[in-house]
Design a protein around this nucleic acid. Structure first.
Lengths: 219, 219
DNA sequence: GGTGAATGGATAGTGTCACTCTCCACTATC
DNA sequence: GATAGTGGAGAGTGACACTATCCATTCACC
């Protein structure tokens, strides 16, 4: 197919497709003459993946390019691939308080998680610790171990999903899709679960004259 | 204190503070003369909160303004406040496939979550369903119920955190901090848990000649 | 074989965002 | 009285993600 059909099939405007080609987020079509090229089903899929990462995952064009470059030149084990995708997905904080990082290391030890504090996300978590203290909400850190238990369940789902991929290239893509779309799904589910739990704890109908109903003075 | 000290205490540049004042993200200082104003500890806290939301939470200035406006004019129950913060935090997808939304409704029913599909996050989740199918990864949807179970644990932590706040205005802020900083902590923990789980399933040292070690042909 | 639409490629322009700079009249402090 | 700092407003900046325009082909149809 040519660019017009690719545009129609993917829902992406022709100038935008040209832009993505220039940016290397979409491989060039197969050249049939000096200024003609053919695109295939793979281009449609890739384009949809790009749009999903941008629209649903909220990634920047630069992040998408980096993630796709990782997928296109795969590593030889899952750990490394996931690490590479993580690195492309998170922008590691510039400087992290070493004591907060040590605290994260301690947490990882208690949890029995053998990933070290050199993992980029360990720095991200340490940055959250620091920020929480700066805004006077250090109390939030007390909940982290329970968050971690929930994340063990989530990670098991994530790994199962990647394992369940039929082919190796599907597997690479499933790391990306699982991380990006899964992340959006999780944040939506979290909010829904909060609403549900809140409704369970403080059933509607109970109205109080001041403060937060059922919270300042729980029923 | 005056603006220079506020800048020093908060680590935010003076022109940026002026910008935040203009944008209404920081309440004006107490005027002592036509062109002099005093700022207090509350301004320092607020400024740190703004920076945490932007730097750690990745919120836009517009989103921060909206969230703070919500906090500054609180509702009379927790459900409503959380809903208002959610609304300010997520940009609801423009159009959602009704059948995907119905599917989300079914899921909510099975889970016993009594929040309806009119919750903005229900649409977000439906958008993920649609995007997953468009990129040929509908299989990811099978993992959603297990994600949801993990989110029940997370939501319990979140609600406990808000309940534990000493005063009502602390409580309002804890909804924001819990949602924003908690979200960043969760995504970092998820990645760390993935790395740990991956290391557990495929211990290092096992090297294979092709494909993903221990995955294409699990040990 | 001629003609109008479409193509690939490149360059320049657009709108948004989050500051950042510059200017101003005025105030505080030495 | 000199100098630095202040609140306030408007214009300017750089990054980002497209979008528009142009051009020399090339295609599809008559």
């Amino acid at each position: 197919m040519r660019i017009a059909e690719l545009s129609r099939r993917s829902g992406v405007a022709v100038p935008t497709i040209k832009f993505y080609l220039r940016e290397g987020m979409l491989p060039p079509g197969e050249r049939t003459s000096p200024n003609q090229a053919q695109y295939d089903e793979g281009h449609v899929r890739r384009l949809r993946l790009v749009r999903a990462m941008i629209d649903i995952g909220g990634l920047s064009v630069a992040a998408v390019r980096e993630v796709l470059a990782t997928v296109d030149s795969p590593r030889d084990n899952l750990d490394e691939l996931m690490g590479a995708v993580s690195k492309a997905l998170v922008d590691e904080p510039a400087e992290v308080d070493p004591s907060a990082l040590a605290e994260v290391g301690e947490l990882l030890g208690e949890l029995g998680w053998d990933c070290g504090t050199d993992h980029p996300s360990a720095s991200s978590l340490a940055a959250v610790y620091t920020a929480a203290r700066e805004v006077g909400h250090e109390r939030i850190i007390d909940g982290i171990p329970r968050y971690a238990k929930a994340c063990e369940l989530i990670a098991a789902v994530d790994l199962d999903y990647v394992e369940g991929a039929a082919e190796v290239d599907q597997m690479l893509e499933s790391v990306v899709v699982g991380t990006v779309l899964g992340g959006s799904a999780l944040s939506a589910l979290r909010r829904l679960a909060q609403a549900a739990e809140s409704g369970r704890r403080y059933p509607p109908g109970v109205v109080e004259s001041e403060g937060l109903a059922g919270v300042a003075d729980p029923v």
